[in-house]
């Protein structure tokens, strides 16, 4: 068996909103109702989440709203500060340095060079006052590219790849449909060829045919570029279509993890069983 270094390793990630009390820190089973402490009201959004993502792999994270799926991506993209935990990227210091102890300037460097993220809400991932091409170039400028012609050419290739007509590249994404906005976000996230892509509910809120086209694009990118992805979705159908391995989240905890097929065919945890049966 060949051992390759995981692209990303997350170790014991926790995120708490609130100070916590003795009850919920030491006796979580009895003190917590869902993910909220009965005594102090602290929300335990993530509790001890660990996983690895391997090169070229798509890791699905599934669970209901509020289960902590998006918080994982927010912490990885430095949009939120984790309460505790460690994360290592193979491309950063050969996986030897914890991302969450890096300085603000280093974090920006990691985010701009080694990560790409697609937000559920395009308003968060794009600047609607700028053209689509400038939105894509922003990521390259952030990674210190200072050549207009080169960035424009790269944006053109990416827009073609994501099937946005290039004659509309100077249009603001504000004037695009939801599906097109998501595809501009995907183009932007891919612009620096990051080793890992973070996708947060990319198809939620899109109609079925547009969903299918965005999913198709993600499949195609996976095939052509071979980039690893974390795919967060509450939709098991999306997970089943794209993810190699899947983590099932509930109340900030990882309740089940395994090959997607295995989870679909033979769910172990009662919550996963409920999820899978509701799909059928």
């Amino acid at each position: 068996m060949t051992t390759t270094l995981p692209v990303l390793t997350v170790d014991d990630l926790s995120k708490r909103y609130g100070s916590g009390c003795a009850a919920c820190r030491d006796h979580a089973e009895t003190a917590l109702q869902g993910n909220t402490c009965r005594h102090c009201g602290t929300v335990h959004a993530l509790s001890g989440v660990s996983f690895e993502v391997h090169p070229g792999e798509v890791l699905g994270i599934v669970g209901e709203s509020g289960s902590g799926k998006s918080t994982i991506l927010n912490c990885l993209y430095f949009d939120e500060e984790p309460t505790s935990g460690h994360a290592y990227l193979a491309a950063y210091e050969r996986g030897a340095a914890d991302l969450w102890t890096a300085s603000g300037e280093r974090r920006r460097w990691i985010r701009n060079h080694l990560l790409g993220k697609v937000y559920q809400n395009p308003m968060l991932g794009l600047n609607m006052d700028f053209s689509s091409v400038a939105n894509i170039a922003e990521k390259m400028i952030a990674a210190n590219d200072r050549h207009v012609g080169r960035m424009e050419a790269r944006a053109r290739v990416l827009l073609e790849h994501t099937r946005i007509p290039t004659h509309r590249m100077k249009t603001s994404p504000r004037q695009f449909s939801g599906g097109m906005q998501q595809r501009v976000q995907i183009a932007k996230a891919l612009s620096n060829e990051p080793p890992i892509l973070l996708l947060d509910e990319v198809t939620t809120g899109l109609d079925l045919s547009v969903q299918a086209r965005v999913l198709d694009l993600i499949k195609q990118i996976r095939r052509d570029v071979g980039v690893a992805m974390i795919l967060v979705s509450h939709d098991l159908a999306v997970i089943r279509m794209l993810a190699d391995r899947t983590i099932v989240m509930r109340d900030g905890r990882q309740v089940e993890a395994g090959l997607t097929d295995q989870i679909m065919e033979d769910p172990q945890h009662p919550y996963t069983q409920e999820l899978v049966y509701s799909l059928l």
């Binding site: 603000g104 300037e105 920006r108 053209s131 400038a134 922003e138 952030a142 200072r146 100077k170």
Partner: peptide
């Protein structure tokens, strides 16, 4: 202020890039 502290001047360049595009 944080952008200055971390020397992230992407935004200033994006403004220029957008002018060149338009």
């Amino acid at each position: 202020r944080r952008l200055h502290a971390e020397r992230d001047y992407t935004g200033a360049y994006v403004l220029l890039f957008e002018q060149i595009m338009r």
